[in-house]
Nucleic acid binder design. Sequence first.
DNA 1: GTAAATTAGTACTAAATCAGTCCTATTTAG
DNA 2: CTAAATAGGACTGATTTAGTACTAATTTAC
Lengths: 154, 154
Amino acid sequence: MLRITKLADYAIVVLSHLSAEQQGSSEKSTARNLSHRSGLPQPTVSKLLKELARSGLVVSERGLLGGYRLARDANAITVADIVHAVEGPIALTECNLSEPEACGYAGACPVEANWIRINDAIVRALGSISLAEMAKPFSPPLVRLSTKRELAHA
Amino acid sequence: MLRITKLADYAIVVLSHLSAEQQGSSEKSTARNLSHRSGLPQPTVSKLLKELARSGLVVSERGLLGGYRLARDANAITVADIVHAVEGPIALTECNLSEPEACGYAGACPVEANWIRINDAIVRALGSISLAEMAKPFSPPLVRLSTKRELAHA
DNA sequence: GTAAATTAGTACTAAATCAGTCCTATTTAG
DNA sequence: CTAAATAGGACTGATTTAGTACTAATTTAC
């Protein structure tokens, strides 16, 4: 159903809290702390932060008094970055991967080039929204907001 | 990984062939015929066309000499229509569904409103490309084409 | 009326993916 | 040394997807 995974969804929630946490101060937050704030289970939050650290979106410090902080400003982290970190490359179809062309129709497929365009458009859409924007609940809409009902019947 | 299903991908391929098939003439094509043209297995193509018929994107006629044709002009069918027909509503997160709010954070979630924006942007991206455009292999790009390699490392 | 070709609908199974938890290192302040 | 924290991986159950198969209904030709 063209869904992102829950983990990617959680990642944005957790990073929003982390961003809010370190407003002004450059304080670290622990997985435990972020779990409490977000209401998400601690093992899940830990798993998430580990992956985000591996991807370079957050920086970790080990040991007592350890924790996580954003690797760069929340304005410089996009939703595309976060989805990419947690789910890997954004590739709507297999054509969009640079992989060993498991498709079998590679090159011969008439719609291949167009999928690349679409994928690019979506990467742009996700790349145009920063974590900073996601973190403020009522940022001015870039596009007209559809109601849930409209979307469900779209 | 933010993928559409293979069935949605196939749907676009099959509909492209169907569209090409009935250029000028208002001829029908059979599932068998479209299977041969697309190289996709016949049972899969049949399953697909049944769903597309149910969704109203194609019109079917039964019996000997039966077959399928597009329900409307290829310019009036968008990629969003096709994805919606095969996969159901485009909803990146559960927030984007009008469902009985299984989320538990409904309303309280700080990023909910922003997900709706993002979802809307993606629906627009998919809605801006018609089947007619998908069917021609080298339509002029609306956006700069990224190479596969760029996308893989994006 | 019968046969043949086609779509309609449903059910089923195997494979892949996702979600969530748990366990065992490693690091570091005190 | 101990406590609190992250790192990495393994594991399991649930969900989704992919593909096939089977039976019924429809329509044309003869």
